[in-house]
């Protein structure tokens, strides 16, 4: 599996490091609360999805924790910038770690790649520290010498658990 992916990668002329660098950059934008820059990583038709059940098939037929298109993302970020967002007073601080990256699909014709990875996000806010972890899949589209996110899907290992308020994207 890993070997096959590497062969495909070679065929596409893309280095695994390019994907890794992109995911690290994305995580860093979130950790630095540069939400607008983070949103700009998404393609115009891009979506950000955090399902509420494992192996969830559709964001339309079942409840999700997040399912934002660019328009909802913008509303979410305007809210994150609002001075009276109570659930971010004080704001969350987060640290992401992204690893175990595997290129799962490549479609050279469309210039699209699916990259799977494992992440851990630690969040601290108002005297409480929380841990989020799971797998994420980025469908990326080639855009000049970088990528745009067509879909970021985050599968939290506890996605069907009960959560205290979550204010920032994972």
């Amino acid at each position: 599996m890993a070997l096959a992916a590497r062969e495909l990668l070679t065929a596409s002329g893309l280095d695994r490091a390019a994907f890794e660098e992109f995911l690290i950059h994305e995580a860093r934008l979130l950790d630095e609360r540069r939400f607008r820059d983070w949103m700009e990583l998404f393609a115009d038709d891009g979506t950000y999805w955090v399902p509420a059940t494992p192996d969830q098939n559709s964001p339309f037929e079942e409840a999700s924790l997040f399912y934002d298109d660019r328009e909802l993302m913008k509303t979410r970020i305007e809210r994150l910038e609002h001075p009276r967002i109570h659930v971010q007073t004080p704001p969350s601080r987060t640290a992401h770690i992204v690893g175990n990256l595997v290129v799962e699909e490549t479609d050279e014709a469309k210039g699209e790649y699916v990259v799977g990875s494992t992440f851990i996000m630690v969040e601290y806010r108002d005297d409480a520290q929380r841990l989020f972890a799971g797998r994420q899949r980025h469908r990326l589209r080639r855009h000049g010498d970088t990528f745009r996110i067509v879909q970021k899907r985050v599968d939290l290992i506890n996605c069907d658990g009960a959560f205290e308020a979550m204010a920032v994207p994972i």
């Binding site: 955090v50 509420a52 409840a63 999700s64 924790l65 997040f66 399912y67 909802l72 509303t75 979410r76 809210r79 967002i85 109570h86 659930v87 007073t89 009960a162 959560f163 205290e164 308020a165 979550m166 204010a167």
Partner: peptide, 18 residues
Amino acid sequence: LNVTHSAASFVQTDDLES
């Protein structure tokens, strides 16, 4: 409803804080 009432929604989270 994800946007208004999920644990990560725009609306419910401020209520939870209150």
